[in-house]
Design a protein around this nucleic acid. Structure first.
Length: 487
RNA sequence: GCGGAAGUAGCUCAGUUGGCAGAGCAUCAGUUUCCCAAACUGAAGGCCGCGGGUUCGAGCCCCGUUUUCCGCUCCA
């Protein structure tokens, strides 16, 4: 990462706050670490990205429908998904080397150096203590076995700490005698809300495999370190689609979605060379193929979207834990046997994109400090957000050149005529140049200016954000022109 | 969580050896302005992150704390 690019990242963060896109959460109380709020133009931009994704998934695919599942889910959901067991790893730090270890990895590595019997005894003791969450005893176990850090060679350890990646909260007003009964989790991914509704959706919307279920919504992960602005937050929004297909066809569907998702990104006019496909060398245990779509942020190539072939893992797990059949009866004829494919648990291809990351992607791609040569030979800087018009928070600014001679009235009429189709913004304060630059800074792609000629022939000028060029056009043509450009 | 740096007006930043809290831009009111951050006049804006300490006196020195950034660490 070059210093320059880091400066650009800092500039984007400052710009996002200054112009009402993203604020630190609870800022008057000194903020809350790694939590952010979206401001007036940020919430519009975020909504537009979400809408664009939603429409491209549901409206544009006859075999994909949406759901909006609750954030709270039955606690067993997370036992079935594996999050309860795999999403909390006790850690320990060596005070000398500052190296952090997962406790189980540290002890297992030591066990491998021991004779078989001792090794087995150590591991069973470790598992017993971890299951009881007796971390003081786990630390004693490490000390008693004189387990050392491979870097510092010392056994100078911190206490064992647990990092639960899922947030817990209490459910219901009255505390139960058994507190465990009251615990619910804030979902760490939206996907499970889709899986548990698999049959509800399939039956009620009369979907036939292959089909997909889309969902957008908040998810929560108590990251050990959450940083880099809105790139890694503890509360974030996902846009996920789970695509259910016949077992054996998952490879071709994986390729299909990998390509389709790439095309979605390119449809926003973002250059292909800013993207990279990163295949996972070792996919998670439940997946048979996985990879990420990475984008070159100012802080380097980072994951924006993951595409995973999740096999039948999730549905099978929920089937086991719920004791409910989660199968699909496929009436299509298998050419190999001449009979219907029959009952099976579908395989799943997941596409999962971070809405906040996509937001940061759009900002990173759009942010530009353009140097303009002035007539007197000097130069000035124009800060402009080249947001794709279809995603821009404000589509059209309507500006009377002066605030008298009846120009504001004409501008107001144009505003009233257009605002039901797209987001318009009216402003009569300050010199026209300053108003143009303010619109540049929040990414408004088009500005209409009403001048004295308007009173004579009902024409106005339209000024384009990216080129700063202007054209004259009749008032009657404005609405269609903008609608066409934001399509 | 560890190490380093930083926190002064809405924003960007000055602030001398420890001696009255400052500028530009932005904001508000008014005048003037016919196309790219215009000019003039005036106004408002501050617990100098927070809490202690040293001192006659602290934005400045010391300790603690918090937030942010950078580097580790972690990451389905």
């Amino acid at each position: 990462m070059s210093t320059n690019d880091n400066n650009k990242f800092q500039a984007i963060i400052a710009h996002a706050k200054e112009y009402g896109f993203v604020f630190p959460s609870s800022e008057i109380y000194d903020g809350l670490s790694a939590v952010y709020d979206y401001g007036p133009w940020g919430s519009e931009l975020k909504k537009n990205i979400r809408d664009y994704w939603w429409k491209s998934m549901t409206q544009m695919h006859e075999n994909i429908v949406g759901v909006d599942a609750a954030i709270f889910m039955h606690p067993t959901t997370w036992k079935a998904s594996g999050h309860v067991d795999n999403f909390s790893d006790p850690m320990i730090d060596n005070k000398d080397s500052k190296k952090r270890y997962r406790v189980d990895h540290l002890i297992e590595a030591h066990a491998e150096t021991l004779p078989e019997q001792e090794s087995a005894a150590l591991l069973s003791e470790m598992e017993k203590l971890l299951a009881e969450e007796d971390f003081a005893a786990v630390k004693k176990l490490i000390e008693d076995h004189k387990i050392k850090c491979s870097i510092s060679g010392t056994a100078n350890w911190t206490d064992v700490r647990q990092f639960n990646l899922m947030f817990k909260t209490e459910f219901g007003a009255v505390a139960s005698d058994n507190q465990e009964d009251n615990i619910v989790y804030l979902r760490p991914e939206t996907a499970q809300g889709i899986f548990v509704n698999f049959l509800n959706v399939q039956k009620t919307a009369r979907m036939k495999v292959p089909f997909g279920i889309a969902q957008t919504g908040k998810a929560f992960r108590n990251e050990i370190v959450a940083r880099q602005f809105i790139f890694r937050m503890r509360e974030f929004e996902q846009m996920e689609m789970q695509f259910f297909c016949r077992p054996g066809t998952q490879k071709e569907w994986f390729e299909y979605w990998k390509n389709a998702r790439k095309q979605w990104h390119l449809s926003l006019g973002i250059p292909e060379e800013k993207y990279r496909w990163h295949p996972h060398a070792k996919p998670a245990f439940y997946a048979d193929n996985a990879g990420d779509i990475e984008y070159e942020f100012p802080i380097g190539f980072k994951e924006v979207e993951g595409i995973h072939s999740r096999t039948d893992y999730d549905l099978t797990q929920h089937q086991t834990y719920s004791k409910k059949k989660l199968q699909y009866f496929d009436n299509d004829i298998d050419e190999a046997t001449g009979k219907p494919y029959g009952n099976y648990v579908p395989y799943v291809i997941e596409t999962s994109i971070g809405l906040d990351r996509m937001f940061l992607l759009i900002l990173s791609q759009a942010y530009d400090e353009e140097t303009l040569a002035k007539e007197d030979g000097s130069s000035e800087t124009r800060t402009v957000l080249r947001i794709p018009p279809k995603l821009a928070p404000i589509k059209l600014a309507i500006l009377p050149l002066t605030k008298k001679d009846g120009l504001p009235e004409i501008a107001r009429n144009i505003m009233n005529n257009c605002r039901d189709e797209f987001y318009c913004f009216y402003e009569e304060k300050d010199a026209i140049g300053k108003r143009y630059r303010r619109m540049d800074a929040i990414g408004t792609p088009f500005c209409i200016t009403v001048d004295h000629q308007t009173k004579e022939d009902n024409t106005v000028t339209i000024r384009y954000r990216d080129t700063m060029t202007q054209e004259r056009l009749p008032i009657a043509a404005i609405k269609e022109l903008v609608k066409d450009k934001i399509k």
